[in-house]
Amino acid sequence: MKKITEEQIGQLAEVVNIGAGNAATAMSHMIGKGVDMTVPFIHTGAIEDIHNVLGDTNEVVVNVFFRIHGDMEGAMLLIFNKKDAVGFANMLTKSNHKDIKDFQDEDLSALQEVGNILLGASVTALGKFLDMNLLHSIPDVSVDMLGASLDEILVELDTEGSLLLFEVDLTVKEAAKTGKLYFLFDPKSSKTVLEKTQEKLGA
């Protein structure tokens, strides 16, 4: 298989923008505040490279994730750092937690539900745009070092090929709280998504 070119990565980033844009809108509706998003940061490499770029950190995060199946294989992740996880949970459950250690089950459920809605909005938008049948698993959540939770997701997707990763930051305007969205495509799916994109864009 040929390597994906810079131009093609740009086209894939457009698609990710559509998905992330919908996540941002969903988030904005949910909390009643404006949400900004960054242009996707793109990384491609073997699982250990991606792990060492993103997960070479022992920082504790809340990681809500689900697998994407159907016409493509991949995963979507919504990551909150500790401070912002507490901020979002407090906003959603009207609590007054100081630390992630104060979290009750309902706080994690609330964040998991945020993930479900945001990631679900992204997948639906992607499926519609690409005219693909995309399914997703139920959301799963981990509170631990980012690298530790990434391991398991990465090896689920691919073991010896090259993955494609897009990262988008979502920031709540007035609250300065940020969530990170990660879109991961396995090598075969990157090609499929690319073909569909080119078809759609008439490129």
């Binding site: 997960g55 690298g147 530790a148």
Partner: peptide
């Protein structure tokens, strides 16, 4: 030591690694 790396030594060194999940 990062993920997918290794290190061997005969010196008085500390070898550390973090973020071990399913690894």
């Amino acid at each position: 030591v990062k993920t997918a790396e290794y290190y061997v030594t005969d010196k008085e060194e500390i070898i550390e690694t973090g973020s071990i999940g399913s690894c």
